[in-house]
Design a protein around this nucleic acid. Sequence first.
DNA 1: TAGCGTGAGGTAAGCGCTTTCCCGGGAAAG
DNA 2: CTTTCCCGGGAAAGCGCTTACCTCACGCTA
Lengths: 332, 332
Amino acid sequence: MATLDDVARRAGVSTATASRIINGSSKPVSAALRDRVEAAVADLHYVPNAHARQLARSERTAVGVVVHDVSDPYFAEITRGLQRVATTDGRLVIICNTYRDPARELDYVELLRAHQVAAMVLAGSGYHDPGFARALRGKLRAYELTGGRVAVIGRHDRTGDAVVPDNEAGGYLAGEHLYALGHRELGVIAGPRNLTTTTDRLTGLRRAARSHRRPPPKVAYADFDRDSGAAATADLLAAHPRLTAIAALNDSMAVGALAHLRGVDRRISVIGFDDMPIARDVTPALTTIRLPLADMGALAMSLALSAPSRDPRVERVPAELVERESTFPPDR
Amino acid sequence: MATLDDVARRAGVSTATASRIINGSSKPVSAALRDRVEAAVADLHYVPNAHARQLARSERTAVGVVVHDVSDPYFAEITRGLQRVATTDGRLVIICNTYRDPARELDYVELLRAHQVAAMVLAGSGYHDPGFARALRGKLRAYELTGGRVAVIGRHDRTGDAVVPDNEAGGYLAGEHLYALGHRELGVIAGPRNLTTTTDRLTGLRRAARSHRRPPPKVAYADFDRDSGAAATADLLAAHPRLTAIAALNDSMAVGALAHLRGVDRRISVIGFDDMPIARDVTPALTTIRLPLADMGALAMSLALSAPSRDPRVERVPAELVERESTFPPDR
DNA sequence: TAGCGTGAGGTAAGCGCTTTCCCGGGAAAG
DNA sequence: CTTTCCCGGGAAAGCGCTTACCTCACGCTA
């Protein structure tokens, strides 16, 4: 690859001058030299080596994002928000997919640190795993000690800047809606047991059951994706034939539930969680608990890019019921 | 941040030794020193500076991916495939979203080159824009001249390794299916005019019309997203009241068409293109032309990571009709 | 005419690593 | 008891940039 040296030599100037011209330094340079250097740059297709540059000035500019999986619509939305503000700020964002593997998450934090990112945001549920939490805290602390900024979305295993969706309240809302419709007993399609998102939403649902004096909901665990949601629905219905309503702990699984129900001769209400874009296009259109995903992403990125504050900033974002057509009173 | 110097000093060894231990060099090192260095690394939470490292060895390791928008399900699927093979190969992937802006695409190619990526894959339609094509070709050639590898998905404005979906044949398939069902005249919801994906698919549709001796389809242009697809459907139906079938040039717009049709008292067939995951969950389930998106991504990444070949490798991937419930014979 | 300020350009010292080359000492060989 | 190897370890030269500092020539003032 052509280097700055090549450019300088070809233009007949020193590397200092070439560098100044290329970077638009404030130091004045004569028009003649400027032209020569620019011509050399064009001729050689010169592009400055980003690593060398990063090493020389030591200001950090990229930012890192750790998510479970960008191709999951939930994270896709969040990422869209994150990107929006990062790009506005002229920053490259490095996206890392953990596929819900805690070990990989730890590795990625290291990798981002190695890449000298100015900030990182961790999105997605935390894990119920004290050992992991400790390790993560340690790594993040070390990073912050050297001026790194971090913000998290939706995990409370860490103090610091965070945007936390009110999963518990959302769960409550879902339960309340279903009970208000007249359902007496709920089935729940939950996500992986070790995720805090699962337990928080479930807690809200259980609280709704208690406060409406209903039996605790019947829970089946799945993987937060469509197909496992469909399978869990089948299991649940087989085990509890009297169920009239199902709350899925995210929309993907709710869509799976709907798919399963299509082949079944029973009218069962389904409520989802998140309000992903597809929710309104399935049939029946999915009633769900809405979270402003893109906004959450944007918020987290702004937090991460703003100056650190003395006290951790925690932005709670409320969940909201969106009624569509997949919930209705039970047949009697 | 702690540097290698800090580690070496704390362990009482030279930076050379520390480096060797940290990188698992082949040079033998005594166990005692190894332990001391490892302890120092742990104590200091040392992480090697990726940029310095990249500069010192000059082997390129990361790979870059340029897509229109990862949060679009089409690219999400492709990206999933790309990631899978890149990760297997132990490589960091840098994802860049152009949001269909040719200028941004050019910038990102530069950026990836600056970051010394070993390879890059450009996914997504090309543009009908000779100036842009020339500029892009120039930049890519310069990159390849310095050992960079590039593979593209679905654009034929460039010779080189490529995986190209057979969009024209897919368009033909869609038209054929509809004509076989008995429709006499088709409406088409097309994507942006300047994308080759749009024109290729459209060409296939027109060929189908000719070979079935039907009038050319009526075309409305939209933006490859749901809402513009819905709007275009409304326009099309208003302008051509006798239409009985609509071919949307991607699934997102087909979903938009379905959404619009829900509020309309006419039975109209809709066929999509791509077979994104949601296609089977909308109602009616979407008949569409399937493209194996994730596989295409994986294939492109393998091409990019493999040794360059003398002749450009072009992997054609066939499109395939997936019949579901959104297409049916016209009412008579 | 001497003295000085100013502005354009160059010199070189790093940034944090990797890796080649060299050195010293102990084991093996004579 | 030398000599020869070998092997663990360190010194130092870059990798490609940025930037603080220096130089030199010119033009101005006194």
